[in-house]
Each structure stands twice: as C-alpha cells, then as structure tokens.
C-alpha cells in the first residue's frame, strides 16, 4: 500500500469561537481520489481551509500529517510549496494584478522551492498558452485582473488552470463543479483527470454525483456536523444523490454508536 499523503486524526477545528469540525478522521494515499459530500454548513470548506492554513480557522485538537510532517505548524505558503493546493469555493478577486502576473509569481516561487530555474518570459508564455488551451481558456482572460469581473464558471476554471500550473501533490477542490455548465464541467473534469497519477492525490468536495461521473473517485465520504459519518466506494455518492442525508442521521449511521455510548 502506498504511503499516506494526508492523515487526519480526531481533528477538531473552530472558526470565530464556534466548533465546526468535531473529531474528523481521514487518510488519503498517493494515487487516490477521495470525494467528500455533505449538506450545507456541515464543515466541508472549513476542512479545506484548515488544510490550506487560512487565518481564522483553528485546529483545536487532533493532528494532521502531510507526507509525515505536522501540517498544522506550517505557514500557508510552505504548504503550497510542498504541493498542497486548494481550489477555492469562492475564488478571490485581485484588482490590478493580471492572471498572467499571478501565475508567473506563483509558478516561479514554487519552481524555486523545488530547485528548478525560474522561467523567463518566453518560456512562461509558451507554458501558459499550452495549459490554457488544455482548459479552453482564452488569452484575453489571462490579461484581465485575477477573477475581477469573471463569471462564476470562469473563476472556477481559473482555479483549475492554476492547479494545472502548480503541479500539486494533494489537490483539494472545494465545489469546483458548482455553477459550471455541462461543457465547462467536462473541461474541468478533463483537467482533473489529466492530473490524476501515481504520486498525486485529490480531495473533491462536492454536492453532486454529476462531477463524479466524470472524475470517478476511489472513496466517497459523507461529512455531517463536522464528522465523517459514512465512507464507501463510488456507489455511496449515488445513494446520497437518491436518498439525501436524512438516513445518515438515523440509527444506522455511525454517529449512533457515539450517541449510544455512556
């Protein structure tokens, strides 16, 4: 069995003094694609932010190991340089900075960290063109300020473009499929699939089975009230789609064991 890239143990996390994750466990190994589903406000984005190191999201108990190292003590940029990538549910706008400048700064920082030479303007441009084509992103878009005035779908595609650029080891996609039309979804899924590989792992946060038709996960987990209450194979996503989350709150859910405990 390959080594785990990510190991989350009994993680508790809170934001603004409110506990959101309440004893979460998850192991992701190289080569695996995991999907997390769960109702609104169950803590999916909170998990993504805790992993990426966003200010205001605090792990209060438990551990997270990333390639064996304590992730929680690493600043966000160190996590990114070590290959952790978060595609934001709500990508952030940066007025005044073009997507091109943004990509270049990010790519060269990460290359430097990996002991690679920084790309000069020409090589960079060539690479951008190639990757942009892959994701059907036109050049005009690259010269516009990052996400400013982008449509919802364009913002999501921009996230995947960044992912394709930065060559991550663990990619966390927070509802990248939401708000995409079917063609865009296929393009994004194609980008994700192209990145699937032996040394890489992915965590897809989604509400819909739809994405999972195109990117078939190895494991599906259901997050409810800050805990994973059910894990299974890809068929679990179908069950969730059919039955919703209500049945998981019932007596047959894993949480019931804890409820029954003295």
């Amino acid at each position: 069995m390959p080594d785990p890239i990510l190991e989350i143990r009994e993680l508790h996390a809170s934001a603004a003094g409110k506990e959101i994750l309440r004893g979460m466990n998850l192991t992701i190994r190289a080569g695996e694609v995991h999907a997390i589903m769960g109702p609104n406000a169950s803590g999916k984005s909170t998990l993504a932010y805790v992993l990426a190191g966003r200010e205001g999201y605090e792990a209060t108990a438990g551990t997270i190991r990333y390639e064996g190292k304590n992730l929680l003590i690493m600043p966000p940029e160190a996590r990114a340089r070590e290959g952790l990538f978060l595609a934001f549910q709500y990508p952030i706008e940066i007025p005044g900075m073009t997507t091109m400048q943004f990509l270049k700064a990010a790519l060269n920082t990460i290359r430097k960290h990996r002991g690679l030479e920084e790309l000069d303007a020409i090589d960079f441009l060539a690479l951008v063109k190639e990757r942009a084509q892959l994701l059907d992103v036109d050049a005009d878009f690259l010269n516009r300020p990052v996400n400013a005035g982008f449509s919802g779908g364009e913002k999501k595609r921009n996230e995947i473009l960044q992912m394709a650029f930065l060559d991550p080891k663990l990619a966390i996609l927070d509802e990248t499929d939401s708000g995409l039309d079917i063609d865009a979804l296929k393009i994004v899924a194609g980008g994700v699939n192209a990145l699937r590989g032996q040394d890489r792992a992915m965590l897809l946060i989604t509400h819909y089975q739809r994405l999972l038709n195109f990117v078939v996960p190895d494991y599906v987990h259901v997050l409810l009230n800050g805990r994973i209450v059910q894990s299974g194979g890809k068929e679990l996503a179908l069950t969730v789609e059919e039955r919703g989350y209500g049945w998981l709150e019932g007596p047959d859910a894993r949480t019931s064991e804890e409820k029954a405990a003295p």
Partner: peptide, 16 residues
C-alpha cells in the same frame, strides 16, 4: 487579508 491568503496559498511568502 483574503487576497493575502490567496497569494500565500499559491506559495508566495508574506513579503512577496
């Protein structure tokens, strides 16, 4: 602060 985090999440240190 959100933009700062966005940039850091792409590998840039605080100063850059």
């Amino acid at each position: 602060r959100d933009v700062l985090f966005y940039l850091r999440s792409r590998g840039l240190d605080l100063e850059d």
